[in-house]
């Protein structure tokens, strides 16, 4: 169980701008192995929140409790950024292997081989990232995140600017891999259809300074989340909660 309560996160005053609150009283928890999507208007502070969770930014007021068990053990965090952020001067394979902890756990090579095959990167694995298409780079970034066997996976709009068929394909792959090895996922997106297709639960965020507005469970069984079901769910959602429309 992961508990998060950010009381306040703001950008300090600079020469150009006054102090600006980004996150205010944002509180939620994630069940073990739950897949949660976060939807909110652009610029509301979603990426900032993920940076806090990943430990990239410790300048905030609040509490982040990532303990996955009572043994106070800090989980492996995988992070899939909005841009793939592969090191251009290392091959795809090297990029993936670099993310492994040192010394690499046993069987990590088999795990990587397997993931590379699932994601269709076998041919491309010894190429440099600049030779790949955006879709392939995004898949490589996914393999990198999965191969460290994370207990907690953070994803920051990882499929943005992919064409629709490619995005659909990569989303299916993501769910396949997640089902095989369940772990907690926090997936940020501004695409409600995507969120309904992927999530167990959706958290809706307000504009900046952001907090959670509503928390919706997706009750369509996985496997029957086709376009029709997703549209029906959306319609019902909009009818029940007027405010959601304004948050997209």
């Amino acid at each position: 169980m992961i508990n998060i309560h950010i009381k306040n996160k703001s950008w300090p005053t600079t020469e150009e701008a006054a102090e600006q609150a980004v996150i205010k009283d944002l509180e939620f928890s994630l069940e073990k192995n739950e897949f949660v999507c976060m939807v909110g208007p652009s610029g509301c502070g979603k990426s900032t929140l993920l940076n806090l969770l990943a430990g990239l930014d410790s300048d905030y007021d609040g509490k982040i409790n990532l303990n996955t068990s009572q043994h106070n053990y800090s989980p492996h965090i995988g992070f899939v950024f909005q841009n793939p952020r592969l090191l251009p001067w290392r091959t795809v394979r090297e990029n993936i292997e670099l993310a492994l902890p040192e010394p690499p756990p046993e069987q990590s090579q088999e795990i990587i081989d397997n993931l590379i095959e699932i994601m269709g990167l076998t041919e491309a694995q010894h190429k440099y990232p600049e030779m790949l298409s955006l879709g392939m780079s995004r898949r490589a970034a996914l393999v990198r995140a999965f191969s460290i066997q994370p207990n907690f996976l953070l994803m920051d709009e990882p499929f943005v600017s992919l064409d629709a068929p490619t995005a659909r394909k990569v989303r299916t792959l993501l769910i396949d891999v997640w089902k095989k090895r369940p772990h907690t996922v926090l997936f940020v997106t501004h695409d409600l259809d995507e969120a309904i297709q992927l999530a167990d639960r959706i958290l809706f965020l307000s504009p900046s300074p952001t907090h959670i507005v509503t928390d919706i469970k997706i009750d369509i069984p996985r496997g029957s989340r086709n376009e029709e079901q997703i549209n029906l769910f959306k319609k019902r959602l909009f009818d029940e909660t007027e405010t959601i429309r304004t948050l997209l």
């Binding site: 990943a54 430990g55 952020r85 670099l98 990198r144």
Partner: peptide
């Protein structure tokens, strides 16, 4: 900065960061 954040989130050691992120 993006690459530093990536390195930090994947817990790159100092030596690894210098060799694979900074020097290139």
């Amino acid at each position: 900065k993006d690459y530093f954040e990536m390195a930090e989130s994947y817990k790159f050691s100092r030596a690894k960061t210098i060799k694979h992120v900074i020097l290139p």
